[in-house]
Design a protein around this nucleic acid. Structure first.
Length: 490
RNA sequence: GUCCCCUUCGUCUAGCCCGGUCCAGGACACCUCCCUUUCACGGAGAAAACACGGGUUCAAAUCCCGUAGGGGACACCA
């Protein structure tokens, strides 16, 4: 069996919020790494925080991952040999390992109140020391414990740090990382109700699930020494650690709501294509090493490698994402993009129910060159919908300024169009002969001629080429619009 | 504050490990031009960076030291 066959990675979100950009990218790197090596990608729900974990968040996370095109091999809705994949269903496992630690004398009950803890922290801060728990409850006697309990205090389980030698680990992207244990205080590993806390639960599960590489955000670097200590006491092997740089907002601070959309769901609503977001995110903090930027998923899987992960944090650049999205919108098969665009058109108030897909496709063909996001669909497509027909200011001004010639052009056009009965739109050759005839019958040329038609037929001075407009807009609509325009001109 | 991490165009990055091929390459954005009787798309081009200071060396973006700046962590959250 090859080495790479044993690769097992995981994405371990906690359902306390929606999947944000950073989380999605971490998932993506894990996914790419697993697929590149033919390994296993596991999804584990870290729902140990009973108060904040919500089923709706979990569902949203699952939905968003699927939307992005990240599928897992083991996890919720996909049972595997290492389940269950919800931490809340693995409590006996943590209890077992907790017992091991207790037997080794490495745990103790702590009765400190949040106020006491905060006071200690502040004091340390004031004295320019690393804030950490100093171990006040380490040597509590049974009598003292009883006293605290009688006072109504609750306890938590802390891990006792006894090691003095520096903790060293080799991070696959950062290299050697070294931490002095004296900067790490005894930390809480379980609540009084037996619910494990992150550092402890995570370590137990990674080990039980045979995770080979832990690929996670940089914010976890400082948790790693704690986890290593735990692992060591538990007699469990450590995985390879890979700390990926975080994603920053344009002002170099942590990406948050005030910088705009942070959840994947919001990007979907704005009309970003999952392929585009996937592609863009993969490039934020990773590069294939050549100049290739637009890549298919398969290409990314093929060229993905951990040693091409970038150490420095990256700024999320919506502009580049948007550019890439436009690229994907233009290159997607017309049938597909039409289906995707429909909801956005409906949302923009365009009436689709009696419209045929083939006609909708023509519209998309007309306007996709202008699109960067699907939610811009309405503003470009509306010119083809009679219910939205409206002369804008620019067009009105133009028509009024060229009133006489415009009237003439439209009268002649109206007459010419009445000769067309079937099919109900005008194709390229029809368009050419129509224009030729129009030109000979009226004394208008070039810009005036075209802009008059454009204004009358679309209500705007900007838009798709006229030949496409004629090929898409039914003649009956053209007639109606010409009438309406003429009435404005009177 | 303490600990840890990071530092190439405005932004994403290639190059750095294995010094010379780099007066630093690509992409987004910006600007100019071409295509186009409009808007886009597309094409061509311009401008734009090795944080700073020392050292090592014939030679440093690349190696070493220091400084500055930025970020992260410091929960009975993950």
């Amino acid at each position: 069996m090859s080495q790479t066959a044993k690769i097992r990675v995981r994405m371990a979100p906690s359902p306390t919020g929606y999947l944000h950009i950073g989380g999605a990218r971490t998932a993506l790197f894990n996914y790419l790494f697993a697929r590149h090596h033919g390994g296993t990608f596991i999804l584990r729900i870290e729902d140990t925080d009973r108060e904040r974990s919500k089923k709706e968040h979990e569902e949203a996370i699952l939905k968003d991952l699927k939307w992005l095109g990240i599928d897992w091999d083991e996890g919720p809705l996909k049972d595997g040999p290492f389940g269950p994949y919800y931490q809340s269903e693995r409590l006996d496992l943590y209890a077992k390992h907790l017992k091991t630690l207790a037997q080794k004398g490495r745990t103790y009950l702590c009765y400190c109140t949040p106020q006491e803890l905060a006071a200690e922290r502040e004091d340390l801060l004031k004295r320019k020391k690393t804030p950490r728990y100093l171990g006040r409850c380490r040597t509590l006697t049974d009598e003292q414990k009883r006293k605290f309990e009688n006072e109504g205090r609750t306890s938590v389980v802390r891990f006792k740090i006894e090691e003095t030698k520096s903790i060293v680990f080799e991070d696959l992207v950062r290299g050697k990382v070294e931490v002095d244990p004296k900067n790490v205080g005894d930390f809480v590993i379980a609540k009084n109700d037996g619910m494990p806390l992150y550092n402890f639960a995570s370590v137990v599960d990674d080990s039980e699930m045979k995770i080979s590489h832990v690929i996670r955000g940089e914010e976890h670097i400082s948790n790693t020494p704690r986890q290593l200590l735990l692992l060591n006491q538990l007699g469990l092997p450590a995985p390879q650690y890979v700390h990926v740089s975080i994603i920053l907002a344009p002002d170099r601070s942590k990406l948050s709501k005030r910088h705009g959309a942070t959840s994947l769901g919001e990007y979907e609503k704005m009309g970003y294509l999952p392929e585009a977001l996937f592609n863009y995110l993969a490039l934020l903090g990773w590069s294939p090493g050549d100049d290739k930027e637009v890549m298919t998923r398969t290409e990314m899987i093929q060229s993905f490698s951990i040693d091409r992960l970038i150490k420095s944090p990256g700024i999320f650049d919506v502009q580049k994402l948007t550019w890439m999205n436009g690229l994907y919108i233009r290159s997607k098969p017309i049938e597909e993009i039409t289906q995707l665009a429909k909801p956005f058109m409906e949302k923009a108030g365009l009436l689709l129910q009696d419209k045929e897909d083939s006609w909708l496709q023509k519209i998309i063909e007309n306007v996709r060159g202008n699109l960067e996001r699907l939610d811009q669909m309405g503003q470009y497509a509306e010119i083809f919908f009679d219910e939205k027909f409206q002369m804008d200011e620019e067009s009105t001004k133009f028509l009024l300024e060229n009133k006489e010639s415009a009237q003439k052009v439209l009268e002649v056009l109206k007459a010419l169009l009445s000769k067309y009965t079937a099919p109900d739109t005008i194709d390229t050759s029809g368009f050419e002969s129509l224009q030729k005839e129009l030109k000979t019958k009226v004394d208008a040329k070039g810009k005036t001629l075209f802009w008059t038609q454009r204004a009358a037929l679309t209500g705007k001075l900007k838009g798709p080429e006229m030949v496409l407009v004629y090929a898409t807009l039914p003649i009956s609509s053209c007639q109606k619009r010409i009438e309406k325009t003429l009435s404005i001109l009177k």
